[in-house]
């Protein structure tokens, strides 16, 4: 699997795809969706789709694809190679959500949560298949969240396509297993060969699975913490594991939309309104007397006089 395009800029989201088999443009097709790397605190989350003609479902079964989680890394690599060899009737596409995309989206002012992020990635991939001319009739989706709602959402979004959202779909439908293999292989490769855009020299690559409860991952996070920057973009800042570590070991950083400061600002506002309520009678003498009102040119530009250096 060639991840070159993602590796060229692993701070953003990237789509990779196989060639579209000609037969998929003429025959009714089924399509499976699965994800890899949702839980880890490190690296990208990868969404994968795999598709083939409905009539070729049996041929896909013969490749002996199975849920990627039940397979060893070597088996997954092997199966991905087989999928690639079946390119006359099997196609795939991936959406790689970089850890930086995950962090900045989830921590955005107007929060963009992981579910929304995942759904949008899945929808984007199905749309990509449609746009590429794949004759989609059936879509199978693996989910960890509530299946019905998601199924409804996708059905509405893609009328004329029969959508099945099912927990553990990756072990029930071979086309979903195939998608999970593609996604997992991409996730593994990108994590293993993570190209740190930071100028950090040699970075210890022994970060384990990336799951927050993996002792290796924990140790790596403790070791690599920078007091000012926290972590390279490889780490998902929106994970509570990361936030807890930063809260206890890094320099405190305040943003204008921090909850604490937001509450404080609200309190402050209440305070002034209270004050002005009590002050209405006497405010003129206090405000017009000696207190000089700074011209709006300066207040608008946040310019103020200084009393001392």
């Amino acid at each position: 699997m060639d991840l070159g395009e993602f590796e060229a800029d692993n701070s953003v989201s990237c789509r990779l795809a196989s060639a579209i088999p000609d037969v998929c443009k003429t025959e009714d097709c089924c399509l499976g969706i699965d994800e890899a790397g949702r839980g880890p605190v490190l690296g990208p989350m990868v969404y994968g789709i795999c598709f083939c003609p409905v009539a070729k479902k049996e041929a896909l079964k013969d490749l002996k694809v199975a849920d990627s989680k039940t397979l060893t890394e070597a088996q997954r690599e092997d199966l991905f190679r087989k999928l690639d060899e079946a390119k006359s009737f099997v196609g795939w596409a991936l959406q790689i959500l970089s850890p930086n995309t995950i962090s900045t989206s989830m921590l955005q002012r107007s929060k963009y949560n992981l579910n929304a992020l995942s759904h949008d990635a899945a929808i984007g991939l199905v749309q990509f298949a449609l746009d590429s001319g794949v004759q989609l009739k059936e879509v199978f989706v693996d989910t960890v969240g509530p299946a019905e709602k998601y199924q409804e959402k996708l059905s509405q979004r893609f009328p004329g396509v029969e959508v099945t959202v099912r927990p553990k779909a990756d072990s029930l439908f071979p086309i979903v297993s195939a998608a999970s293999i593609c996604a997992k292989v991409a996730r593994d490769h990108s994590v293993k060969d993570w190209n740190f855009p930071e100028d950090l020299g040699e970075v210890d690559a022994d970060y384990g699975s990336g799951y927050p409860n993996d002792p290796k991952t924990k140790a790596w996070l403790l070791k690599e913490l920078d007091p000012v920057f926290g972590y390279p973009q490889f780490v998902r800042f929106s994970w509570s594991t990361t936030q807890t570590l930063l809260d206890s070991k890094a320099v405190t950083v305040h943003w204008d939309d921090d909850e604490e400061d937001g509450e404080k600002a609200a309190a402050r506002q209440n305070n002034t309104s209270m004050l002005s309520y009590f002050k209405t009678g006497s405010k003129t003498s206090a405000q017009q007397g000696n207190t000089h009102q700074t011209h709006r040119f300066f207040t608008e530009r946040r310019l103020q006089s200084l009393a001392t250096l």
């Binding site: 929106s238 509570s240 930063l246 809260d247 405190t252 943003w255 921090d258 400061d261």
Partner: peptide, 9 residues
């Protein structure tokens, strides 16, 4: 997710 620490003077 956001820090809840107070600003120190």
């Amino acid at each position: 997710m956001t820090t809840k620490k107070k600003r120190t003077p």
